[in-house]
Simulated assay, not measured.
Amino acid sequence: MNKTVSIIIPCRNEENYIKQCIDSFLNQSYPKELIEIIIADGMSTDNTRNIINEISKKNNNVILIDNKKFTAPAGMNLGIKKSNSDIIIIFGAHAYADKEFVKENVLALENEEVGCAGGVITTINDSIKGEAIAEAMSCPFGVGNALFRYAEKEAFVDTVGFGAYYRKFITEIGLFDEELVRNQDDELNFRVQKTGKKILLNPKIKSTYFSRGDFKKLWRQYYQYGFWKVRVIQKHKKPASIRHLIPLMFVLFLLFGGIGSIFSNLIRIGYFSTIVLYLILDAVFSLKLSKKKSLLHFPYLFITFPILHISYGIGFIFGIVNFYIVRSKKVEEKNKEISR
């Protein structure tokens, strides 16, 4: 394994996490001389840039570049263009990598049919509410078949978080779409599959992500996922997976089922029966996950699951209205504001 690797990290105001993130790549099992770490900073106003500069003084493979467009895909593309390495790995400043992370990605890409490799992201937080959110984001009831949240076996999937690509290949298919502040990795991986290449999820590729510990920020995050997913589907004429449509169908059911139940006893029975079933499943999964931690997590889990589903579904509806009907640049700009 003598491939050179560039870790591309877009960030902005990540003073609490950026050092641990960079350190995790300075301490990889993969040869240090083959790794460079490119941080595309969106002109941070906290201590992030000072921390990076101090680290780079001692490590000449840590490179800071300015991302004056501020968004993650713009930072990713700047990093890719700055790199001359064989392999690109996209990573987040709000996370850190396992010691074998780079090595396992390089090994995964040795399979010629693989265009993108990635692994399982463990989500954590240090508050009770944050831990509940993290558990819900790693549960099939919360995120469907998003296997990169919880998979235990290697599989071909429709997308991964923190993807690894050959730089030449990712350049040929057009880099990240800078219009998309969310779902830009999904959209890129859609194009990867269009070339005939596959996306490999390997549980040996491990990383840890610090989740949001706030319901308001979580709601906005998943609302934006739903909103921008519509634009991805519009660009490619179809969804990458049926799971992307389920929250939409759930919210439409809540809306139109509620209206219909006013006029029909039969619809009312079906409507409330379905809601009761959902709440039972919510309670069952919340109780199951809270047993791993403590029963104090139960109420937060019980609230988190509906937030994940409903916010995504509502975001999807507003995305349909915006991208297919009114096409408001003002609305799009508002939904480019990332909450952390």
Rank of each mutant, 00 (worst) to 15 (best):
S85E: 09
N50Q: 09
N105Q: 12
L175M: 05
V160D: 03
F305I: 08
F70V: 15
N13E: 09
I35W: 06
T171F: 15
F25R: 04
N322H: 08
E100N: 05
C116N: 01
M43P: 12
F298R: 14
S127V: 14
L308V: 13
H236C: 08
Y225G: 06
I325T: 05
G163C: 11
Y165E: 03
W219C: 09
K204M: 13
F227E: 02
I307N: 13
F253N: 13
V232D: 07
Y312G: 01
V181Y: 02
K291P: 03
T71Q: 08
Y278W: 13
S273V: 14
A74K: 01
K198G: 09
K334L: 06
N183L: 06
E36W: 02
G42N: 06
M43W: 10
F263V: 11
F25Q: 04
K198N: 01
L254P: 15
S211D: 04
I173L: 01
T48H: 07
L175T: 00
E178Q: 02
N16A: 03
Q221P: 03
I317D: 10
I128L: 09
R268V: 14
C21Q: 05
S273T: 10
I88M: 14
F305L: 07
A97S: 09
F101H: 10
F253L: 12
G315H: 00
T208Y: 08
Q224F: 06
K336C: 12
N61S: 12
E179C: 11
L245C: 05
T45V: 05
E104F: 13
I88A: 14
D41W: 15
L281T: 02
I325G: 02
K204F: 13
K129M: 11
K82D: 07
V102R: 07
V230L: 04
Y165D: 10
K19M: 02
K206E: 04
T304M: 01
R191T: 00
V160G: 14
F323K: 09
Y17K: 12
V62F: 07
V120Y: 10
N2K: 05
I124G: 05
F210T: 07
K194T: 09
I124R: 04
R340K: 01
L308F: 05
K58N: 02
N61I: 11
C116H: 05
L200I: 01
I170W: 14
E135I: 13
Y278S: 10
E15V: 11
L26R: 02
I37E: 09
Y223T: 15
T304Y: 08
L26Y: 11
I22G: 05
E337D: 00
N27Y: 06
T122L: 03
L147T: 01
C21L: 07
G270N: 14
G196H: 12
K216A: 04
N67S: 00
I269L: 06
F101E: 03
